[in-house]
């Protein structure tokens, strides 16, 4: 079984967000880049599955769409344990454009399980995984919080409103994963970092694809009013404010 994990290269989640060019582009000066947190959980789970040899996972590939500056993030994924990496050499576009690049890579390989994080922490599109599956006309399962292999069959736990389900779909399929898929993201060990330098990282050219949306402008949220503090021995006043000022009780 061959697993491919789609990786988005995103600003560290503690980044102070700034924009430039009259609020039309994200100002990435001084930004630390990381593997999108959900993608990192997907990769962690893929490595866990591969390490249990009874699962017969032969290979874990990681892929990203981005310029050369995204390569340290791919190397980090290799250091965590992926066997090889692919970078589609492109500035990123909208979700449709990125999904088309990934679909093209996946079509040219032989992958049984395609994993994507449920959203990226920068543009929060929740779109790429589902789009890839539709472009490839293969099944997809979203909101996955558990993934295991039993006798060659992939069993998926997904969250539904008010509960969870165990489901299966025939491979190849796209699995869109969220929290719960792995307990903690794996941190690369020194040995992994050394080995990652020698692992194959293939750069493939961009394919033509349509953009269906564009970000026209960014807006910072209005600063909020300061918090109204109430003494700990005056809980009655809090109830009064919630009832009569905020009118939420």
């Amino acid at each position: 079984m061959h697993i491919i994990v789609c990786i988005s290269n995103v600003p560290d989640t503690t980044t102070k967000v700034k924009f430039s060019s009259e609020n039309t582009s994200f100002d990435d000066s001084g930004v630390q880049w990381i593997i999108n947190p959900w993608d990192e959980l997907a990769l962690t789970r893929a490595m866990e599955l591969k390490e249990d040899t009874s699962n017969a996972v032969s290979n874990v590939t990681v892929v990203t769409v981005g310029p050369a500056g995204a390569e340290p993030t791919l190397r980090k994924a290799l250091a965590i344990g992926a066997d090889d990496a692919i970078r589609v050499d492109s500035e990123t576009g909208d979700a449709h454009f990125v999904a088309a690049q990934l679909a093209s890579v996946i079509k040219n390989g032989e992958f049984d399980v395609i994993l994507c994080g449920i959203e990226s922490s920068d543009y929060n599109g929740s779109a790429v995984g589902g789009m890839v599956s539709e472009m490839l006309d293969i099944p997809s399962v979203s909101a996955i919080s558990g993934l295991r292999i039993d006798n060659g069959e992939v069993l998926i736990t997904r969250d539904i409103d008010g509960g969870r389900e165990e489901v299966s779909v025939p491979a190849p399929f796209v699995g869109v994963v969220q929290k719960g898929i792995a307990k903690e993201p794996r941190i690369a060990a020194m040995r992994g970092i050394m080995m990652a330098r020698k692992k194959p990282l293939q750069v493939v050219p961009v394919v033509e694809a349509e953009k269906l949306t564009t970000y026209q402008e960014y807006v910072m949220p209005e600063p909020k009013a300061p918090c109204k503090m109430i003494e700990a021995d005056n809980v009655k006043e809090l109830v009064n404010l919630l009832q009569n000022e905020a009118k939420v009780l």
């Binding site: 979700a95 599109g125 779109a127 589902g130 399962v141 997904r158 869109v176």
Partner: peptide, 23 residues
Amino acid sequence: QNNTGKAIAPRLSVRLKAGLAAG
């Protein structure tokens, strides 16, 4: 923009060639 929407809206965006604005 919930579990169901996140699962299906991207597929529909591709199927209908309709730009997706999520959330």
